[in-house]
């Protein structure tokens, strides 16, 4: 059945609650009721188009963002997409678990000090300051203006960058530009492997 028809069915919610008085185990019904509430929220959710973050087929996604909480409550395939036609494989179908809904998502800047056995939380300003300082120090120390043959090479061989084919084009391009501006030659990522 089409998604819109399924959403209309959510109107029949009320009946389930009356059953508790008859000794019916409510847990599965409550779970079902939660699902129906979710369907209600889907009806008013803001829909955003995206593209799956896994293989290179590039299947279309529809993300539903709850109008009250501002959080993603559902991600499913886009039936309009000419390649995927609404289908998703197991990974794409599970993209909801890459969002805030997954308790394992990194949400703080973490820092591991030399010889330490744990992470500490830091803020962005501190991290960016320290990272830029480390990069500048190493670049200034090891920059190669001319090679052994006397040719101008303007490169750094003690810094390396990897990644990522998991990032948007605009992010990739920005990283390439940054890496070259520093003089890096050790640049690589998933395309090689």
């Amino acid at each position: 059945m089409r998604r819109r028809q399924f959403l209309k069915m959510s109107c029949v919610l009320g009946a389930g609650v009356a059953l508790c008085g008859l000794g019916v185990d409510l847990v599965p019904i409550e779970a079902w009721a939660d699902e129906i509430k979710k369907i209600d929220r889907l009806k008013t959710a803001r829909q955003t188009m995206s593209v799956c973050c896994y293989c290179s087929v590039g299947c279309g996604l529809i993300c539903a963002t709850d109008e009250k909480t501002g959080k993603i409550i559902n991600i499913e395939g886009d039936p309009e997409h000419p390649v995927s036609e609404g289908s998703l494989c197991a990974k794409g179908a599970g993209i909801f678990q890459t969002t805030e809904a997954n308790e394992h998502r990194l949400t703080k800047v973490l820092y591991r000090a030399p010889n330490s056995d744990k992470w500490e939380e830091k803020n962005w300003d501190w991290a960016i300051d320290r990272i830029a300082r480390l990069m500048k120090e190493e670049r200034d120390k090891s920059f190669i203006t001319k090679n052994a043959a006397g040719q101008v090479v303007n490169r750094v061989e003690t810094l390396a960058h990897m990644g990522s084919s998991n990032l948007d084009n605009e992010e990739c391009w920005s990283i390439t530009a940054w890496a070259r501006s520093l003089g890096l030659v050790y640049i690589d990522h998933q395309a090689r492997v």
Binding site: T48, S50, V51, C52, C53, S56, V57, G58, L61, C63, I72, I75, V83, I95, T98, T99, R105, L106, T107, K108, V109, L110, Y111, R112, A113, P114, N115, S116, D117, W119, A127, R130, I131, L134, N166, D168, N169, E170, E171
Partner: peptide, 25 residues
Amino acid sequence: PAKVKTEVFLLPASASVEKAGSQTN
């Protein structure tokens, strides 16, 4: 860890559905 001197920064990033941009299939 007591013998590893490397400073490590772990930066938290937005996931794919949390940003706008293009992707090439």
